[in-house]
Simulated scan of single mutants.
Amino acid sequence: MDLEQIIQATKKQMPLSRWEHTLRVRDMALELAEQQAEIQSHQVELAAILHDYCKFWSDEQLVAWIQEKSLPEELLLYNKEIWHGPVGAEVAREKWGVLEEDVLNAIRYHTTGRPNMSVLEKIIFLADYIEPGRQFPGIDEIRKWAKLDLDQALLQSLENTIMFLIRRKQKVYPLTFITRNYYLDRVKENSKS
């Protein structure tokens, strides 16, 4: 698996603006990872580069992968914006030979989150959410928290996402609610100790 080859192939999968986003996510993820002793930078870079690999695939391509790879069919009942994460993890495994489950999970759950995320998963989720090109209400506070407490930053970003979807009268993927509740409990528990 040649990272430079993956970088060039990923760049070809998306418009320039999304590629620039991908580079900002990589840089933000590497910055967040500096504070975490157990994180290897090659895993961070690999997950960040591949996180949106399938973002601009056609709906038909994404649906075909969801069905062929026996991914949760319930994905198809929700906004297609979440499809590229699970499909991207499968593509990373099959096309690029990525076998590190932590990297695959970081790609798979970067839009929905999941309970008990690894540090790498949290970093990719948050880097995608707070990279410098993003601007929306509340993001500066989440950026501050991301450098102090990944769980608190995750909780706030999940709550923002849920409220955004509710205001737009869109369905919220159940795993995102479950993840928010998990991190709410975790943040409360950590504040007691």
Score class of each variant (00 low, 15 high):
I124V: 14
S118L: 10
W145L: 14
L62C: 05
D102A: 12
D149Q: 02
L77P: 08
N190R: 13
I66K: 09
L126G: 00
E68V: 06
V119N: 09
H84K: 04
K55N: 11
A92S: 12
W145N: 05
D185E: 15
D128Y: 01
E121C: 05
V119R: 07
R168E: 10
V119L: 09
V87R: 04
T176N: 14
Y183E: 11
G97D: 08
L104P: 01
R93S: 14
S41R: 07
W145Y: 09
R93D: 10
Q40F: 01
K169P: 02
K11Q: 15
R143K: 08
L165C: 05
I124F: 08
T161K: 09
L62W: 05
L175V: 02
L46H: 04
I162M: 05
H110F: 12
K95Y: 09
K169I: 06
R114E: 05
Q135D: 13
C54R: 01
V187W: 05
S193K: 13
V25F: 03
S17E: 15
A153K: 08
L32T: 04
G85R: 03
F136Y: 12
K55E: 04
R114Q: 13
T179K: 03
R134N: 08
A127M: 05
P115F: 12
E94I: 04
K188F: 12
Y78I: 00
S118I: 15
W83T: 07
Q36W: 03
E90S: 04
F136P: 06
N116W: 15
P86V: 07
V119T: 15
I123H: 00
R114D: 03
K95E: 15
T112C: 02
H42G: 03
T22A: 09
E90Y: 01
R167G: 06
A153E: 02
L175H: 02
E34G: 09
V25N: 02
S118R: 10
I139S: 04
E141R: 06
H51T: 12
Q170V: 06
I66Q: 12
W96E: 08
V44D: 01
R134S: 05
E131R: 03
L30T: 08
